[in-house]
Design a protein around this nucleic acid. Structure first.
Lengths: 216, 216
DNA sequence: GTAGCGTCTCGAACAACGTTAGAGAACCTG
DNA sequence: CAGGTTCTCTAACGTTGTTCGAGACGCTAC
């Protein structure tokens, strides 16, 4: 049975989730597929293209965008879309690093269009809806990249040194005390906090738009 | 004259701004410094450490954090701090990719502390001030990473294909028409839009905090 | 039936990379 | 001048992405 490009990409995604991006070498991927390394070049132009295809696959795996459920406020639904993206980027190891290097691909466009439709339906001008979506996407990617960078460095000595230096800075110390230190799920809490800020800003802007529209 | 670590790092930062991260090889950096490649290992443990030091240097180059000017609203000042970061990450090529892979380093802590001080002074609890700062930082990094990924792919054929597909999606087409297409400074405009949303959310949250505090 | 042509895979090899080992200048210190 | 630290070198290793050219399989045409 002939190997297909889809098989190569899917196996690559799984292998990266297992061993990380740095250990994802073409020879290893080939071995995993029971094939010789140069064989991969028949299915893929080069590694760069393989990574692009992996990014597309990861986006697809994130799940289709939805429309707001009946009776659900649009801002809650919008936050849920962001969480969908967030989970897709954080559930697979190093997924953010691969997706970050990609422009909104062909596969992402229909999803963007659908989310835009719901935003336009509640009163956003198309241009503003698009920029809002892209801004939220950038925030999610930033959080995910930062989170994986943190995970890649489990350097206890470094953490200790950082914590000690933070002890000399009064506000920082107070904040860390209030947060109970950088715990395990601190990333998710931080993500949710910033997401709430962002969505809050979108709501405020939406209200201003409606007000201006009603006033004139 | 003996080579110092600072010279190595500074030259590395400049070289990367010139040729990009991928072309920043130890041999090339060594040649640039008039030195043999293994010599670098006397000044730096390995390439990973060199990149970490470069990230620190880039953060330092961004410029010191300020306090709000007298009479300046805190939210305008906060946005200005974000722009400072943004300019530092986008003025040097591939700077975002290097900084993104780094935890808030020792050098970044004093800056964070100073910004926190100003936020606490206007009524933010320390924990919320910290999370706000980190959220803004994540947004900035996400924007910068995305921007450089876009710059790395100046593939006209790809852009054309994307644009054509967008033409079939009504809302997307309307948005792009309103924005005048992906122009040269579209990134900056997009960054400013999301930043305004985020800061708006922070203001709204701050008002809610003050209201709750005054009510009880 | 066999000649020919796409499809798919392989072994061998290349240049370049990060990195290590070990030898040797140059410099202080006694 | 002896000894050790500081800094640099040449040589080389293993691994990576990638290319070349040869072959095996299946299909179609005459």
């Amino acid at each position: 049975m002939a190997l297909t490009q889809d098989q190569v990409v899917e196996r690559a995604v799984d292998l990266m989730a297992e061993v990380g991006l740095e250990a994802l070498t073409l020879r290893r991927l080939a071995t995993e597929l029971g094939v010789s390394a140069p064989t991969l070049y028949w299915h893929v132009r080069n590694k760069r293209e393989l990574l692009d295809l992996m990014a597309e696959a990861l986006i697809t795996r994130a799940g289709r965008a939805t429309s707001p459920a009946p009776g659900q406020p649009w801002w809650e639904w919008l936050a849920e879309q962001a969480r969908l993206q967030w989970r897709a980027l954080t559930s697979h190891r190093d997924a953010a690093l691969v997706v970050a290097g990609n422009r909104p691909t062909d596969t992402a466009l229909p999803g963007i269009e659908q989310v835009m439709a719901s935003l336009v339906a509640v009163g956003f001008p198309p241009a503003e809806a698009l920029r809002t979506i892209l801004s939220i996407g950038n925030y999610v990617i930033g959080c995910a990249v930062e989170r994986q960078a943190e995970a890649a460095r489990d350097d206890p000595e470094r953490d200790a040194r950082l914590l000690q230096q933070a002890g000399d800075l009064p506000h920082l110390r107070a904040a860390l005390a209030g947060l109970g230190g950088p715990g395990p799920s601190a990333d998710d809490a931080g993500f949710e906090y910033g997401l709430a800020l962002l969505i809050g800003g979108v709501r405020a802007h939406h209200a201003a738009l409606a007000g201006a529209g009603a006033a004139t």
